[in-house]
């Protein structure tokens, strides 16, 4: 059984002089190892919800539990060191080199020098930056994408179980963003971090999240898997927000495994093969270029696990 990493119990946040609650009566459980995206427009309370987890915002009422412990009962500074924190543009300290930035938390945890050095090298490799080239550079000598990679490496330095990411890829160009998203997914699959990732980008939220929290006016509108949100939006707001009735949107968001059937055909040669995590858009392209009636589906280990018929795919449109 997986542990509950973060639990919200009837949590409200009210800022002084505001008319309504920024976050209103939120109760939900986030399991260890889950990648959760928090989706909403600006002012929806998504960032506030996240910042309450590392106590950058105090809770007005209700409780948040971190692996079963009420976060208000923990010493705040030590508690924050257990949580990785990534902000937009990486939030790197401009007067520190890449290595110094990554070493911030290990340094305050008083690791010895060799351990810190080894960790910095390891993390640079993990985020795909050559240590000889980047270790001694200053943040302003890096591109936005590189800065963000360092930001992620820094947040992971002390190997926290939970990571909070506040629109980390918001100001990055589309191609670099795609790469960073793929890298983050790869890292998360390898290390099984629990991630809370705030974004206003629907495609990003659905691509990255195992489950998505849709926020609006401080309330959780729906908390479910991307597929279920797309196919069964909880209310009109969610349906409209994620354009659930837009066929193209569905194709972009839904993954092959949601419409996959068990294998029924015997011959597997000459048939096109898609991956379980490909989007239906990719699948559609495969159908169009291979002109077959059926596409096979493989998993991460290249094993054929199912098939999708053209008929099944076209049913999405209706």
């Amino acid at each position: 059984m997986t542990a509950v990493a973060v639990e919200f119990k009837n949590v409200c946040k009210h800022f002084p002089e505001a008319e309504v609650n920024a976050v209103s009566h939120v109760s939900l459980k986030i399991n260890q190892g889950e990648f959760i995206t928090i989706l909403g427009t600006s002012g929806s309370g998504k960032t506030t919800l996240m910042k309450m987890v590392n106590r950058l915002h105090d809770i007005t009422s209700g409780d948040i539990f971190f692996f079963g412990e009420n976060i208000n009962s923990l010493p705040v500074v030590e508690y924050r060191r257990k949580i990785g924190y990534v902000v937009q543009q990486g939030g790197l300290f401009p007067h520190m080199t890449v290595a110094e930035n990554i070493a911030v938390v290990p340094h305050i945890l008083k690791w010895d020098k060799e351990k810190i050095d080894a960790r910095v090298d390891e993390l640079l490799e993990m985020v795909g930056l050559k240590k000889e080239l980047y270790k001694d550079r200053y943040p302003r000598q890096l591109s936005g994408g590189q800065q963000q990679r360092i930001g992620i490496a820094r947040a992971m330095a002390s190997d926290p179980a939970v990571m909070l990411m506040d629109e980390p890829f918001g100001a990055i160009d589309a191609i670099t963003r795609e790469n960073l998203q793929d890298e983050l997914l790869r890292i998360q699959k390898a290390l099984h971090k629990t991630i809370l990732f705030v974004t206003h980008d629907i495609s990003e939220a659905f691509k990255l999240g195992d489950r998505v929290i849709v926020m609006h006016e401080g309330k959780v509108q729906q908390f479910d898997t991307p597929d279920r949100i797309m196919l069964h939006p909880a209310n009109d707001f969610v349906a409209k927000f994620v354009s659930a009735d837009d066929v193209m949107k569905k194709l972009q968001v839904l993954k092959v495994h949601t419409i996959m059937d068990g294998l029924s055909i015997k011959t597997s040669n000459q048939l096109a093969v898609a991956h379980v995590d490909d989007t239906l858009e990719t699948l559609l392209k495969l159908f169009m270029t291979s002109s077959t009636q059926t596409v096979l589906v493989k998993d991460d280990k290249d094993k054929i696990v199912g098939e999708v018929s053209w008929h099944r795919l076209s049913a999405i449109a209706s």
Binding site: V77, Y79, R81, Y85, V87, G91, F93, A155
Partner: peptide, 24 residues
């Protein structure tokens, strides 16, 4: 935002002053 990042990473007030604010 830098101040908040430092805080969010778990620096106490003294560390924020000495390592972030003073050098900047």
């Amino acid at each position: 935002s830098l101040y908040e990042t430092a805080k969010g990473m778990g620096m106490d007030e003294k560390q924020i002053f000495l390592k972030i604010e003073w050098p900047l």
